[in-house]
Design a protein around this nucleic acid. Structure first.
Length: 302
DNA sequence: GCTAGAATAT
DNA sequence: AATATTCTAG
């Protein structure tokens, strides 16, 4: 009767910053500030209380994490000055129907101004303009690990994205981050002598990818990688010290984080015709659950 | 048509 | 500064 509670102590780094079900910000509320909504006369406000919304979001929604700006907006922030406002407005103003397709289309007609009242609730996280992704140290670590694992050569957005296995993470997200990461790496290599610029923030603490890494182990049956990390002093970034460091080797195809929340997979399915492809790592007979991003405090101090 | 990567934009 | 979006080329 207490096995459920015993998820597994081997939760290594993966669970590092993973949000627990409760940690997830219940965001399914309007992205549009009340005032704004009012101004445009949208959303007469259905009889939904915050509680309901929250409940609903917990039930189905994938609890996309919205950047704090949204939270601020939701918190009701009248015109002020913060970009938060602008950001929120920007996000909310967009009737976004499809995070993927609705790129630049003005739809001269049938604007279907669907705010966030109920239409999307049924969309099961299908549509919605994703909030700005925040590369938390945990996410970044994952990213770096994967990149290192692949080797700079094979580290392309799509592959990285897949290996990271983080729900909601898009190729674009990764591409963008990768772009920056590469710049950082380049800079660092240029200055063979260290000297982590204080402006490196996140990157500063990431071990540069050892180029001497594999490169085509995509087909290598060398599954039983026994890279056992000698020291696993992972757990411990609680508080105010962001640490982490080198000394860790990247395992194989990323181990699925022992999520405690068993429900959260929705339409993000991969049934799109793509099957295996280059990312065909050994044989995985398991469908790993995807991980969600965000939802963790971002404490960075040194 | 899709993707990676660079160039812009926010 | 950090991310997103757009643009270009393979």
């Amino acid at each position: 009767m207490s096995e459920e509670a015993k998820i597994d102590d081997s939760v290594s780094d993966w669970e590092d910053g993973l949000p627990s079900a409760e940690d997830l910000t219940p965001l399914s509320q309007c992205l549009i500030p009340l005032e704004l909504a009012s101004a445009f006369r949208i959303s007469p406000d259905p009889p939904r209380t915050a509680v309901d919304v929250t409940r609903a979001s917990r039930t189905t929604l994938s609890s996309l994490r919205i950047s704090s700006s949204a939270a601020a907006a939701a918190n009701f922030k009248p015109f002020g000055d913060d970009q938060a406002m602008a950001a929120a407005a920007d996000e909310g103003a967009d009737e976004g129907s499809d995070p993927k397709k609705t790129r630049r289309a003005d739809s001269p007609d049938d604007p279907t101004v669907d705010n966030c009242t109920d239409d999307q609730s049924t969309a099961t996280a299908k549509a919605l303009k994703r909030p700005r992704l925040v590369w938390t140290p945990q996410l970044h670590k994952r990213f770096v690990d994967v990149v290192a694992h692949l080797g700079l050569k094979n580290a392309v957005p799509k592959t990285i994205m897949q290996l990271m296995n983080v729900e909601g993470l898009t190729r674009e997200n990764v591409a963008s981050h990768l772009q920056k990461y590469r710049l950082y790496v380049k800079r660092m290599q240029g200055l063979s002598n260290e000297g982590p610029s204080p402006s490196d923030h996140l990157f500063a603490s990431t071990p540069l990818p050892t180029q001497s890494f594999n490169e085509s182990s995509s087909a290598g049956p060398s599954h039983g990688n026994g890279i056992a990390n000698g020291s696993h002093s992972s757990v411990g970034n609680n508080g105010s010290s962001a640490n982490n460091h080198m000394g860790m080797s990247i395992p194989m195809p990323y181990p699925p984080p022992p999520q405690i929340v068993p429900m959260q997979m929705m339409g993000m399915a991969h049934g799109h015709g793509y099957h295996g492809y280059e990312a065909a790592h050994s044989h995985h007979s398991h469908h790993y659950q995807q991980q969600q991003y965000g939802s963790m405090m971002q404490q960075q101090r040194d």
